[in-house]
């Protein structure tokens, strides 16, 4: 079989395939255990959540804006000392996130937040986010100047902030 014949045969393979059974009931069950997409205008937005969201957004945004405007100057330096510019920015971003969340979640809301973080769905989501961050940090160590990976890491911080939204919205 020639390369051309093989490629044509591959291209002709059917793109669609039925699952062995209807998957919708399983999907619907999982959706039922979750909230509607966040765009749904049904959830009351509390001032506390908005304040926290704004704090986290400002912290991450400032870090992100800073790194977007500095690579030309900092990248060579980071490359010279072997640390990697994006890797260093990732540490700064994580610190900004931790600081913003700690400032927003302390005080009288600490117990409420602890209960929320112990629920199975949140534990599972946190575990997934932790894994994503570990993998991204590992990838950054292999490619320490990757702005792309750094942007993905920023998104995990934002996702974690969104994860806390249900608990904060009732405060």
């Amino acid at each position: 079989m020639s390369d051309f014949e093989l490629r044509r045969a591959l291209k002709d393979l059917p793109r669609e395939r039925d699952p062995r059974a209807d998957l919708w009931p399983g999907i619907a069950a999982r959706l039922g255990a979750q909230q509607a997409p966040a765009a749904a205008p049904v959830r009351r937005q509390s001032p506390r959540w908005l304040a926290i969201a704004a704090t986290v957004a400002v912290a991450l945004g400032a870090t992100w804006l800073g790194l977007r405007t500095q690579p030309a100057g900092d990248a060579p330096r980071a490359a010279r000392d072997g640390s990697g510019w994006s890797l260093a920015q990732a540490d700064a971003m994580a610190e900004s996130y931790r600081g913003a969340m700690a400032a927003s979640l302390g005080g009288e809301h600490r117990a409420e937040m602890a209960r929320f973080l112990a629920t199975p769905d949140v534990v599972a989501a946190e575990r997934e986010l932790d894994a994503a961050q570990r993998q991204l940090q590992q990838a950054l160590r292999a490619d320490p100047n990757s702005v792309y990976l750094l942007d993905l890491l920023r998104q995990t911080h934002e996702q974690r902030a969104r994860l806390y939204r249900p608990a904060l919205a009732i405060g």
Partner: peptide, 20 residues
């Protein structure tokens, strides 16, 4: 906007291609 029935419609339209 949270309409699960609409999402089921999307599932019915695209499930075979996604699964494939």
């Amino acid at each position: 906007s949270g309409d699960v029935r609409a999402f089921e419609d999307l599932y019915r339209r695209h499930a075979r291609r996604v699964h494939g």
